[in-house]
Amino acid sequence: MNLLDIINDPNTRWILLGTMFLGLSSGVIGSFAYLRKQSLLGDTLAHAALPGICVAFILTGVKSTSFFLIGAALAGLVAVFLISVLTRYSKIKQDAALGIVLSSFFGFGIVLLTQIQQSEYGNQSGLDTFLFGQTASMVMSDVYMMMTVSFILIFTCTVFFKEFKLLSFDPGFAKGIGLPVVFLDYFIMMLIVAAVVIGIQAVGVVLMASLLITPAVSARYWTERLHIMVILSGIFGMLSGVSGTLISTSVNNLPTGPLIVLSATVWFFFSMLFAPKRGVLSTVWRRLSTKKKYSLEQDKRKGSHPL
């Protein structure tokens, strides 16, 4: 198939719309996760979805996306709960708690997945596509759901922008003026779970976190204003979603997740190199030109006052 065929195919157009919204909303909510230094949290919540999907399949015995996603969401909530219990009631630091939850949930998920695939109808379950994502399996109703959830995510981040901003910058001060910091903390985690749930079909549990964090990191290079960063991050996510899907559909149904994440990585390198002010090239350029100007001035001074 060439690019034009793909874009003219109505089914693909729907899928593109889905991944576009997915990238947009992940980029937006991911900005806050990144600024709150919770990059690992996204990774943990994404990996935690796997056992949820498997348990949903074992319990229902049918291959139904809605059941899978409900399972993924529930597993995410259990993970959120465990993380907060571990950090609050033990001396374990947050990154260690996240690591423990991530590996145990994912390990358990892989065990269940292997079990299912060795059982009689395992091969048709298609559960393995949730590891790295496969847009080909998406149907219209999936896209509707992705769009609805994305819309809610973006709307929420807009409405609570001021609160999320203060919470990300200075949680102590936020608490001081009476913001329910603990509640907001959970709330943001729920939003991340929601983004993960709509993302696992297209991107998969293994790489979903990159779609949350990489666009945010790229966006940070371009601006010193939070709202611009959030919007840019959404745009980078959206571009990654679209280009990843296009490549995956045109090149013989490669798994979509890695391609979307690779696209996001391309944007990241582009930003890191070419962003004005914070980018590598501009930093080097600035240093060199300052140095040159300075030495020119020095020369002039020496010239006018010969020893």
Binding site: K37, D170, L226, M229
Partner: peptide
């Protein structure tokens, strides 16, 4: 108590 490399300017912080 805060990370000062946050995408915001002085005026914004005071407005908080």
């Amino acid at each position: 108590s805060v990370d000062w490399d946050f995408p915001t300017n002085a005026l914004d912080v005071v407005m908080m």
